[in-house]
Design a binder for these strands. Structure first.
Length: 335
DNA sequence: AAATCGCCCAACCGCAGGACA
DNA sequence: ATGTCCTGCGGTTGGGCGATT
């Protein structure tokens, strides 16, 4: 196989598109449909690379593209979605019918970002620049920063614990998340509860695909737990709602979990939504006090024989029978 | 009126990953 | 298993244009 040259081919035009080129592209796509971008330029008589054609079509010529200024509602949606997805412009665009990722990205960088800064809100973290937590709906916890911190922490943590431990803790967290999901959270959270989100995606039904996170209300059926990989208190629960009374209730949720599961609420940090799933965030103290954390997990998990005596069909060794508490050894506990 | 500056946004670039031969 | 195709993505660039000097 020989890779055919794309954008590097000689004689290909670059830069702004002419009306004539647009017409050729529109005519071709209307007749043959989208796709086959690599061979499209030749067939359509365009001296452009396929990539350029695809982008021109996707960002400008597509018939369903909405033109004109962004409405306030759209801007609010972008802000809220950015708080959830970070710079995942395509994910944001999927929830804003008629807007392209490029358009949203440009609008964010040229307008919204400045607007937030002017209001004293950090566009990266969606929190006030002076450090206090915001009570504005534009300050949903920023998953990009959360994940960034997660990455940062993992890289730091790996120095002392190793990457396998990080993976392991995530597995444990996920397992435990399902466990408390079954037993407690469905009762605690129910429908609605204190978790009122301001995320109001405008996705049409057909575009909802798998990430139907139309509500950030933690849903017991899709609640997981992952390692909150930072000890910095930037993802405090109080930022989750702009309702002044909500943070208190929100904080209480962890006490409720403690009451019903016996798991220390000190290990719980936050709940965030990402791609339609709600995650219980563990506090950084989990990795600092790994043994205590693991023992607590063990106590709870062992109560559920059906889930802990076998995992993925294979026998698991109780944690107290593992020779040393190396993460690799404990990992076997889950098969 | 001309030069400069800053903003905006369409287009480009490089990379990643799934599909396929 | 490997290499290529194809598409999608996020970050960056540069040309056009209005505002300012």
């Amino acid at each position: 196989m020989v890779r055919t040259p794309c954008c590097r081919a000689e004689g290909l035009k670059k830069g702004a598109w002419t009306q004539e080129e647009d017409q050729k592209l529109i005519a071709y796509v209307q007749h043959h449909g989208e796709g086959g971008w690599r061979t499209l330029p030749d067939k359509a008589g365009l001296k452009r690379c396929g990539k350029s054609c695809r982008l021109r079509w996707a960002n400008y010529l597509r018939p369903d593209i909405k033109r004109g200024e962004f409405s306030e509602e759209e801007e609010d949606s972008i802000i809220n979605l950015h708080a959830i997805h970070g710079n995942k412009w395509s994910a944001i665009a999927r929830r804003l019918p008629g807007r392209t990722d490029n358009e949203i990205k440009n609008h964010w960088n040229t307008h919204i970002k400045k607007r937030l800064i002017k209001k004293g809100i950090d566009p990266l973290t969606h929190k006030f620049l002076d450090g206090k937590s915001s009570d504005h709906p534009e300050t949903l916890p920023d998953k990009s920063s959360v994940h960034q911190e997660d990455d940062d922490h993992n890289s730091n943590n790996n120095k002392s614990l190793g990457s396998s431990s990080a993976r392991f803790l995530n597995r444990v967290a996920n397992k435990f998340g399902k466990r408390i999901n079954h037993s407690a959270l469905s009762d605690i959270i129910g429908s609605g509860g204190p978790f009122t989100s301001h995320t109001t995606p405008t996705t049409s039904g057909s575009e909802c695909e798998k990430s139907t996170s139309s509500s950030s209300t933690p849903n017991s059926s899709n609640l997981h737990m992952i390692l909150e990989a930072t000890t910095t208190p930037t993802t405090s629960a109080s930022t989750f709602s702009n309702d002044a009374s909500a943070p208190l209730l929100y904080d209480n949720i962890f006490d409720d979990i403690e009451d019903m599961t016996g798991f220390s609420s000190r290990y719980l940090n936050d709940i965030v939504s990402h791609d339609g799933e709600d995650f219980l965030m563990l506090d950084g103290s989990c990795s600092e006090n790994t043994l205590l954390f693991m023992k607590e997990l063990t106590m709870i998990l062992r109560e559920d024989k059906t889930e802990t005596t076998s995992f993925n069909g294979s026998h698991v060794t109780p944690i107290d029978e593992v020779d040393d508490y190396s993460f690799e050894g404990i990992d076997n506990w889950f098969g």
